[in-house]
Amino acid sequence: MQLNTPSSPHIHSGDQLSQLMQRVLWALLPAITLYVVFFGWGIIVNILIAVLAALTFEAIALRLRKRPLGSNLGDFSAVLTAVLLALALPPLAPWWLLVVAVFFAIVFAKHLYGGLGFNPFNPAMIGYVVVLISFPREVTTWLPPEAISGESISFVGALSATLTGTLANGINPDAISMATPLDHLKTQLTQNHVISEIIHDNTIFGQLAGSGWEWINLAFLVGGCWLIYKKVIHWHIPVAMLASLALIAGVFWLIDSERYASPLFHLLSGGAMLGAFFIATDPVTASTTNRGRILFGIGIGILVYIIRSWGGYPEGVAFAVLLMNMLAPTLDYYTQPRVFGRGRNS
């Protein structure tokens, strides 16, 4: 009798990498839905272009590296990188901006380092930073919510704007685009305006933070909590990051609420929630010990606040994540958990 003799353990939970990635994608769905509600179909066009580009680059890179296509394309990691990038870049951005960002994310940040699992830096953030530095105008041109601009962006309109530069009705998106709430606040503050004056009667600010943005951020929060509940991510990084951001923002806000935005504004603006739950938690590039994760999160939270308040860019999540990526291996080494039956230092 011929018997099969693999080594133990002989059973497996059935968890799969692709399932993990798909769950993260599902968790983004509420925020994407609200994005469409507030800002029109632009984000969907972004996602489609980015995903298409990501799969193409992934397939080419795998082919060049002589790796099997099927199982690697099917792990949804490239799709996730693409969707995160699409969310980080402004809707109606030209198609080539997305393609360049995705190219750097997939080819440079991921495959040149050895592919999935070997990249030291978050690929989506590398792609984002490359286009942010190279094409600052395109990356910082955001649409206001439809309710403010009065312009509703249809799918065809968005597609047309992305591909040709003008909306289907001939309007140039530049004409209706505005700075993001974070950007606006920063510029105004540098011109010595005070916060109550800046926010007063400005429709881009909502009840809690940026109009529209506040709800999208809350939707990221909901999706993120679901991921924690499903044990796809650990709570340590998002909680540490958001708590440190809120704490440091709170201190400055208490000192001078006219010059420093409220903690709530910081938490619900820009990429805070997306960064905390979906980007900083990328396991490949984050710290993997629990204490390391907390330090990693705190570092990002502090850096985000520093860059937003005193740095050259209105938003700092991408830079903060990349900077902390560099520290992750060291954090891992020095924060090893206490092994069963051993003292802390043995």
Partner: peptide, 20 residues
């Protein structure tokens, strides 16, 4: 067929010896 390790840390969560 094994995929790449993405350092998700599920293994560390279940290790009864608290290894990584």
């Amino acid at each position: 067929q094994a995929h790449a390790c993405i350092r998700c840390g599920s293994c560390a969560d279940v290790c009864p010896i608290n290894l990584l």
